[in-house]
Computed example of a mutant assay.
Amino acid sequence: MLTGLQIAVIGGDARQIEIIRKLNELDAKLFLIGFEQLDHSFTGAVKEKLSEINLKEIDAIILPVAGTNLTGEVDTIFSNEKVVLTEEILKKTPSHCTIYSGISNAYLDEIIQKSNRKLELLFERDDVAIYNSIPTIEGVLMMVIQHTDFTIHGSKTVVLGFGRNGMTISRVFHSLGAKVRVGARRKEHIARIEEMGLESFHLKDLEQIVKDADIVINTIPHLIVTASVISKMPHHTLIIDIASKPGGTDFRYAEKRGIKAILTPSLPGIVAPKTAGQILANVLAELMKEDLMKRKEST
Rank of each mutant, 00 (worst) to 15 (best):
T98F: 05
Y100S: 01
Y100E: 01
S101L: 04
S104W: 00
S104D: 12
S104E: 08
A106F: 01
A106T: 10
A106S: 11
D109Y: 11
E110W: 01
I111Q: 12
I111Y: 14
I111A: 09
I111E: 13
Q113D: 06
Q113H: 08
K114I: 00
K114W: 02
R117T: 02
K118M: 01
K118E: 05
L119F: 11
E120N: 06
L122C: 08
F123P: 04
D127T: 14
D127C: 10
I130F: 09
I130W: 08
I130T: 05
N132Q: 11
N132D: 09
S133K: 00
S133V: 03
I134P: 02
P135L: 07
P135A: 10
P135Y: 05
T136D: 05
T136Q: 04
T136Y: 04
I137K: 05
I137T: 14
G139Q: 06
V140C: 11
V140R: 03
V140K: 04
M142A: 06
M143H: 08
M143L: 15
M143S: 07
V144K: 00
I145T: 09
I145R: 07
Q146F: 00
H147D: 03
T148N: 07
D149N: 15
F150Q: 06
T151Q: 03
H153L: 00
H153T: 06
H153I: 03
S155A: 15
S155R: 09
V158R: 00
V158Q: 01
V159T: 08
G161N: 12
N165V: 01
M167A: 10
T168S: 14
V172Q: 09
V172Y: 10
V172K: 10
F173P: 02
L176M: 15
L176V: 00
G177R: 02
A178G: 13
A178M: 13
K179R: 11
V180D: 02
V180T: 04
V182C: 04
G183K: 08
G183H: 11
R186T: 07
K187Y: 08
K187T: 10
E188C: 06
H189D: 15
I190N: 01
I190W: 05
R192S: 07
I193D: 15
I193H: 08
E195N: 14
E195I: 10
M196E: 15
G197N: 14
E199R: 10
E199I: 09
S200Y: 11
H202D: 07
H202M: 07
K204P: 04
D205M: 13
D205Y: 14
L206Y: 01
L206G: 01
L206C: 02
E207K: 06
E207V: 03
Q208W: 12
Q208G: 14
